[in-house]
Computed example of a mutant assay.
Amino acid sequence: MSKHCTHVNQIQTVTPSATGCEECLAMGDRWVHLRECLICGHIGCCDSSKNKHATKHFQTTGHPIVRSFEPGEDWRWCYIDNTFI
């Protein structure tokens, strides 16, 4: 049986906070892929990036759902339910 996300009601219409990972841009660092928080619009780097800023944003804010911010990708992930939406 597939798992369902219980947090989709928290998704907002957001504006991306940056064109790249906010924290990496500020530190002059690089990232592998980008994720957008669907609660506030924060752009952070993925867990394949050394800084893992998208996950750190979730850990700090509790905002559970991100989407890929990569061109051509259209998926969402819930950190709490550990599942794709």
Score class of each variant (00 low, 15 high):
76 R>Y: 09
74 D>T: 04
65 I>G: 02
67 R>T: 04
36 E>V: 12
28 G>H: 07
71 P>E: 09
55 T>I: 08
11 I>Q: 07
4 H>C: 10
7 H>R: 05
55 T>A: 14
77 W>P: 00
57 H>S: 02
69 F>T: 02
77 W>L: 04
66 V>T: 13
72 G>L: 03
80 I>F: 08
35 R>A: 10
52 K>L: 11
40 C>V: 06
65 I>R: 01
70 E>W: 05
38 L>M: 13
70 E>K: 05
72 G>F: 00
35 R>G: 07
52 K>T: 12
10 Q>A: 09
70 E>Q: 08
36 E>S: 07
73 E>H: 09
2 S>M: 13
47 D>T: 14
5 C>M: 00
37 C>F: 05
12 Q>F: 05
60 T>F: 06
28 G>I: 07
24 C>E: 07
64 P>S: 01
80 I>A: 07
56 K>E: 13
61 T>H: 01
22 E>W: 01
51 N>K: 13
53 H>K: 08
14 V>A: 04
39 I>H: 09
33 H>E: 11
65 I>N: 01
40 C>S: 07
30 R>D: 15
44 G>N: 03
45 C>W: 06
60 T>E: 11
15 T>Y: 06
23 E>H: 15
70 E>A: 05
11 I>W: 05
58 F>H: 10
77 W>D: 00
47 D>L: 11
53 H>N: 14
30 R>Q: 14
57 H>I: 04
36 E>K: 14
36 E>Y: 00
66 V>H: 07
10 Q>T: 15
7 H>C: 01
48 S>H: 12
25 L>N: 14
21 C>A: 08
75 W>G: 00
